[in-house]
Design a binder for these strands. Structure first.
Length: 288
DNA sequence: AAATTGCGCAACCGCATCATT
DNA sequence: GAATGATGCGGTTGCGCAATT
């Protein structure tokens, strides 16, 4: 038995969205949200569109945090690095680029970056065998034996204060426990410039800002790194594992994307500091 | 100036996965 | 565990526009 179509294709509009349709969809979503059902949304909003089409339009174009325009060199590097590691998992790659959508990244790769990287590969093969900063494309046909793969190990994630507080601000049940003013940090505006603390072995990076929710009782505080980056193998799991933590979510409940952890206990500032200090390596993480 | 070509990007399609019953 | 429905995702298409012939 075949699947039923998600909508009546004969009675839905297709093709480019008009500004009026955009306005209707945007204002509806800003007012009511998805209601947990994209399929029913267009009818409720008064749009003659397929629910999937509405979802795509919102995610790829109408969302307020979408970044349009050219990609930076840094974004190029992230895309190439991740493509070499995980292939065409565009949603994963896009998740590392704030404001970028998987469709954007996919289009950019297919139209520009792939050619750019192939050209770089051709140059590197014709000039030297000791490549240093060029990402080689492993998915394209290559002569045997294959050239050495050079994968930069830069791992960067950036969360803004607004991102950090998004799960709180969108969740009325936890809003009472969380601030709406990002400047209101743990310990009443105490940020976390803890210079001289040891960092995880083998990683170089920086935590630009540390913040936590402003509970007076630190034993129930939740906290999160904001705008941290780590250069080295592993990425975020390794980053935190080397602090002796299983993962960011285990302790840093309340961090962006970890809403399900809200409500668990978290280490207070002193405990966290002692965990960091107890590492026997010299400082490799700088806090600024 | 008209026709053709190439490019960029929005949108669609169909399959995979997840959630619910 | 099976059936069903909703969502997420990657591949692909097709339109509009600019560059080229």
């Amino acid at each position: 038995m075949g699947r039923a179509p998600c909508c009546d294709k004969a009675n839905v509009k297709r093709g480019p969205w008009s500004p009026e349709e955009d306005m209707v969809l945007k204002s509806y979503l800003e007012r009511y949200g998805t209601g947990g059902n994209w399929i029913a949304l267009p009818q409720k909003a008064g749009l003659k569109r397929c629910g999937k089409s509405c979802r795509l339009r919102w995610l790829n174009y109408l969302r307020p945090d979408i970044k349009h325009g050219g990609f930076t060199e840094e974004e190029d590097s992230v895309i190439c690095t991740l493509y070499n590691k995980i292939g065409s998992r565009w949603s994963v790659i896009a998740s590392q680029l704030p404001g970028r959508t998987d469709n954007d990244v996919k289009n950019y790769w297919n139209t520009k970056l792939k050619k750019k990287m192939m050209a770089a590969q051709a140059i590197s093969l014709s000039t030297t065998t000791t490549t240093t900063n060029i990402n080689l494309i492993t998915h394209s046909p290559s002569p045997s034996p294959p050239p050495p793969l050079v994968i930069p190990t830069i791992k960067t994630e950036s969360y803004t204060c607004d991102d950090f507080f998004t799960p709180f601000n969108n969740d009325t049940t936890s809003a009472a426990l969380a601030p709406t003013d990002p400047s209101f940090m743990f310990g009443h505006n105490t940020s976390f410039p803890m210079a001289g603390l040891p960092g995880p072995p083998g990683l170089n990076g920086s935590v630009h800002q540390y913040s936590a929710s402003p509970h007076d009782d630190p034993s129930t505080a939740s906290c999160s790194y904001v705008n941290w980056s780590a250069n080295g193998p592993g990425g975020d799991d390794a980053f935190f594992a080397d602090f002796g933590l299983e993962s960011p979510c285990e302790f840093f409940n309340g961090c962006y994307g970890c809403q399900e952890k809200i409500g668990q206990s978290a280490p207070n500032q002193a405990t966290l500091a002692s965990m960091l200090v107890s590492s026997d390596t010299k400082p490799q993480i700088t806090y600024s």
